[in-house]
């Protein structure tokens, strides 16, 4: 089953959000307009808008406000992707050329800045202090997370805590924020808002861990980029952290990355095979499942409803996601 099937009844609302996204990025300049639209059309799961919609439906649902929040969150996410591709020198994203690759760094920088500006112009039409305080704090933390990711690149001796803090900032915070903003808009009480924020956080952690697993277990076609891309770039993810406990793997990875000019696809593929054989993938799934369990537990007291059921289904789906 595809993830989108779990929330297929949101199709109409998601279309409205998609249309709004398209219209918000209609820059006066064709290059900015085309670059932003290209990124938008490359797709993506729109998981943040989905969480805003679902949590927004748990209370007093106001589509206009929800649309504004969802559009801004997605634009912020997209702006960070455009800049990430400059940082990673990435040629492909979701199998399509990146803005950085199709145009250049300068255009990618302008496009990212433009999209972030549009996100803030858009969200400030909502005058709710909690919304802005939560989103701005998340945005600062996301930026810090990106810096920390670079700080710990090629650091083979980092521990699990550092990895978890990094993926929290990188992924989980924006998903948690999506859930919280939807819940605030719906007028839910503080306790439920907190629970939904935590639900989003746990889901985000699990989601990123599985993404990190799939970087080793999926094919280039499924990923839209070569397998093991994270490892090539020195990003040490959970499977590597587990595998590195094996002295043979530790020595091998140090040996390979000590000679960065000689890194080949064959050597990376050999490392991927060693990771798969080490049991690291299974251990990573276990950690991911623990987060999913926490996500399910935290919302169990929220009154039953279709959107709540969907939140649970998403947690179940993420646990089974294999590409």
């Amino acid at each position: 089953m595809k993830l989108a099937k779990t929330y297929s009844y949101l199709k109409k609302e998601l279309q409205i959000i998609e249309k709004a996204l398209g219209s918000v990025i209609q820059s006066e300049h064709p290059v900015l307009r085309n670059a932003s639209t290209q990124l938008l059309k490359a797709g993506g799961k729109r998981i943040r808008p989905v969480f805003v919609l679902l949590t927004g439906k748990l209370g007093d649902f106001r589509m206009e406000e929800i649309k504004t929040i969802a559009v801004s969150l997605e634009l912020i996410h997209m702006a960070t992707l455009v800049h990430d591709d400059v940082i990673d020198d990435a040629e492909l994203r979701r199998g399509k050329p990146t803005i950085k690759h199709q145009y250049d760094n300068r255009v990618a920088m302008y496009t990212g800045d433009y999209m972030l500006a549009r996100a803030l112009e858009n969200i400030t039409s909502i005058k709710m202090p909690e919304i802005h305080q939560c989103l701005s704090k998340a945005l600062v933390d996301v930026c810090i997370g990106e810096v920390e990711q670079i700080k710990y690149k090629y650091n083979w001796e980092q521990n699990l805590r550092i990895y978890l803090r990094r993926i929290k900032r990188k992924t989980a915070l924006l998903i948690a924020t999506s859930c919280k903003l939807g819940a605030i808009s719906a007028g839910l009480d503080a306790s439920d808002v907190r629970k939904l924020y935590k639900y989003g956080y746990y889901i985000g952690m699990s989601y990123q861990i599985i993404d990190d697993i799939l970087d080793f277990t999926s094919t280039e076609k499924q990923l839209g980029k070569p397998a093991g891309s994270d490892l090539r770039q020195g990003n040490i993810t959970l499977p590597v952290l587990f595998a590195i406990k094996e002295p043979i793997f530790f020595q091998e990875i140090i040996h390979i990355f000590n000679h960065p000019n000689e890194i080949t696809d064959e050597k990376i593929n050999a490392l991927i095979d060693m990771i798969k054989d080490s049991g690291a993938i299974e251990k990573s799934y276990q950690i991911s499942n623990q987060y999913l369990q926490k996500a399910l537990n935290i919302i169990k007291d929220i009154p039953d409803s279709v959107p709540k059921q969907t939140l649970e289904n998403i947690a179940h789906y993420i646990g089974k996601r294999r590409f």
């Binding site: 940082i87 802005h132 305080q133 600062v140 670079i150």
Partner: peptide, 16 residues
């Protein structure tokens, strides 16, 4: 790249 993004996010935080 990240420093520029970080300063932008701070402006939003301070005014929020």
């Amino acid at each position: 790249v990240l420093a520029g993004d970080y300063y932008s996010s701070l402006y939003y935080l301070l005014l929020s």
